[in-house]
Write a protein that binds this DNA or RNA. Structure first.
Lengths: 330, 330
DNA sequence: TTGTATGCGTTATCAA
DNA sequence: TTGATAACGCATACAA
């Protein structure tokens, strides 16, 4: 593979001149520049990124730490990563990917952060559910001078790009009301505030009492069980705002078992717009999060941090809008 | 960050000695070695991978080209990538990830392969659906001396790790027969041979005539429509082997609309074990492909190629078994 | 058993 | 406007 030296010899100038000509900066005679560029093209020159990084001390790689338990193989990750990669590549950065370890290996996950830093990346993007807790990890990265961004991490104290879940639920519940639903229940775990806050706020706006059916874990099975609980309420709700698509699909299954017609008797809305939401019976209305856009936003923050841009007023964190996808379950 | 030089100064020896001591090869006095190792630990020494690679000419990175149209955000990719990453890391290799471009940018995808090669990776893993066609891409990589592996690519002429789809269908259809199903239909696109071959072979084994319901595209909507076609057959099939989970879930929806009971009247099996398969009503019996294992296998082939191992008898390609996951749809 | 010196390909310093 | 040359951190041929 062609080096600067090869181009220099081919075009009869020094290496330094080749460097200037290719970079486009500094004084280079027009004729010389053209000659050099021609040689470079001819030899199919590609800069050796390693050598460049070694010399400048600037990394052209962003490391992404994905995974941890459960989330490790989450389909929603891939779109975020794809968005990041595209935006990073446009900014002349490559993306390196690592996965966290299982739960029992917490200590090894701490070491993992060390390893990430020791690879001297230009920046680090972290998914929630990784070994190290968010705040200590962020502090460690700040101390180490490594630009970082969290993706969709609930902890407000760290720089993160997030989806506006509260707004998503607000739009969904408002939509249910606009379609004439009178008794809209919320089914979900109650320790996740953003969605629940969105629901309660909206019900207040609508002047209606909230109907909250708590569940221990946001699983399909608990969703299925919750369907019975909802159906047993008197008066019975005519709409359900589910915590997630997984929960909502469990609710769908539970309602089917009870012989309850969807959406005629009860409408159901999910959250996430997983692939499964478009493949259910009936296809599930849901709140879509633009994961590609989230990845792009994360990359943009990282690129800005790498460039040394000053943090914008209000900090680096960004909140992205969500969108209601209406399907046949409402 | 500590360099070899720092350790050398701290322990009062030369850089060369530090190198030998850390590597564990060559003659180093025991006391000296201990002193050096202690300093290294104290200073938290981490080798600078870039410098090492630049010097040795050996890359410690494998690039993964994922994506292309449609498949770009496929949830099944993430498990493969995770498996690869884990296995690569164990082999002291890092994973770099790139995504192909949309269909209209075919020419740019050709350039993409150039870019991959020009980054001088230790190896390259390619997902199907990428811009360059498999055979020319493989030849280009072979000429360039870059070890490669395709993941689940149908083209038999390239080195690839694949799932044994034929075997998966065989197991599924055999299972249906063992559960007393008499008329087992196959619903799918007929230009994909491996699954169809598995079905036809099994029906032959069972001494039954095949019932093939072709569909134009393997989509949920076409699956839904195919359900009517199946239901209209006389005699009506009592089991359906679906081309994929997406198709099978469409079939489920179509059967629900017709008021046909699943699995009492018709059993349904899918293929892929997507997340959606476990979230449907009823949960879908399906053929699981161990994508994590596929990623691991791909990494192993790549690591062997990088080491310069001779190709095993029968070539580098590997075929991985699939597994039937029985749920409530059968 | 240990040390010196060189080069990987690039960028940057400084002089010409 | 251009060219020698040093340096990034590591690995290794060669000398001691």
């Amino acid at each position: 593979m062609a080096r600067l030296k090869d181009i220099a010899e081919a075009s009869g100038v020094s290496i330094r001149t080749v460097g200037r000509a290719l970079k486009g900066a500094g004084y280079v005679h027009k004729d010389v520049r053209e000659r050099v560029l021609a040689s470079a093209k001819e030899l199919d020159y590609r800069p050796h990124r390693l050598a460049r990084s070694l010399r400048t001390g600037r990394s052209h790689e962003v490391l992404v730490l994905a995974g941890g338990i459960g989330g490790q193989r989450d389909e929603l990750h891939i779109a975020k990563i794809a968005g990041m990669e595209r935006a990073l590549r446009a900014g002349d950065m490559a993306l390196g990917l690592l996965f966290g370890l299982e739960d029992q290996a917490r200590r090894q996950n701490r070491d993992l952060l060390d390893e990430l830093i020791s690879r001297r990346p230009g920046g680090i993007a972290l998914f929630p559910g990784d070994g190290p807790q968010a705040k200590p990890a962020a502090r460690r990265l700040e101390v180490g001078g490594v630009p970082y961004i969290f993706l969709d991490h609930p902890d407000r104290d760290v720089d993160a790009v997030r989806h506006d879940r509260q707004q998503g639920v607000h739009e969904a519940v408002t939509y249910l009301a606009s379609r004439g639903r009178k008794r809209i229940a919320y089914v979900g775990v109650i320790d996740e505030r953003s969605r629940l806050d969105g629901y309660e706020r909206t019900m207040r706006e609508l002047g209606r009492p909230p109907i909250i059916v708590p569940m221990p874990k946001p699983t399909w099975e608990d969703g299925r069980k919750a369907a019975s609980a909802v159906a047993a309420l008197d008066p019975r709700p005519d709409a359900i705002m589910g915590y997630s698509d997984i929960v909502a699909l469990g609710i769908l299954a539970g309602l089917h078992e009870l012989g309850i017609k969807i959406p005629a008797e009860i409408a159901v809305i999910g959250f996430d717009d997983r692939m499964a939401a478009s493949l259910s019976f009936p296809p599930l209305t849901t709140v879509q999060q633009d994961n590609d856009a989230l990845g792009v936003a994360a990359a943009e923050v990282l690129l800005a941090k790498v460039r040394g841009d000053p943090p914008p007023a209000g900090g680096w964190s960004r909140l992205l809008p969500t969108r209601l996808i209406v399907r046949a379950s409402t």
